[in-house]
Design a protein around this nucleic acid. Structure first.
Length: 160
DNA sequence: TGACCTTTGAAGCCA
DNA sequence: TGGCTTCAAAGGTCA
């Protein structure tokens, strides 16, 4: 079975591989797919339902997502806990909580996720040599160009 | 239906 | 090299 997100997108093949290998995630959806299969095999399998996919030779790289960074990995692991607490339902609010929890983590706790993210990046490089984050630029259409300078999403984030 | 919100980090581009 | 921009996940909300 392919691993699909709630939006019908392919779930990144590296996430279950690495996260399950470190037992960071419970075996619950959406990561209930097969564990331990060869990465390239999964990469191919996860492409079956996609419009196009990347096969490592520079062809069809449209659906290859960026590898998750440390915070994203932390989010995936911790998000369901926040949901279970029932305090928030909206992702924006949940992510604010997760951001505070991330800062509350000790360095050793955070380094666990940094290491995992580094493994993801390395494996991503091996699976998709030549892939660039630039490939996915422009896939989302932002509508914020009309706003005055300093109010773009990033300028907001940079003001931290 | 699809952009927005919200977070942090990685990566790419430009001056 | 530093600063800015975009994307990665997630799902409720809103136009």
């Amino acid at each position: 079975m392919e691993q699909m997100s709630s939006r019908g997108e392919c779930v990144h093949p590296l996430v279950p591989l690495l996260l399950y290998s470190d037992r960071l995630l419970p075996p619950s959806p959406p990561y209930s797919g097969p564990i331990g299969a060869a990465a390239s095999k999964q990469a191919d399998a996860h492409c079956l339902g996609a419009d196009t996919c990347y096969h490592g030779n520079g062809i069809n790289r449209q659906t290859v997502k960026k590898p998750l960074n440390a915070f994203m990995l932390f989010m995936k692991e911790t998000r369901h806990k926040v949901l279970q607490e029932g305090r928030e339902r909206e992702s924006a609010a949940i992510n604010r909580i997760l951001g505070r929890r991330w800062h509350a983590l000790s360095r050793s706790e955070q380094s666990k996720y940094y290491d995992l993210a580094q493994k993801e990046r390395l494996l991503h490089m091996q699976l998709y040599p030549g892939w660039s984050a630039r490939d996915n630029y422009g896939k989302r259409k932002r509508k914020r160009s009309q706003e005055p300078t300093g109010s773009s999403p990033r300028s907001r984030q940079n003001s931290k």
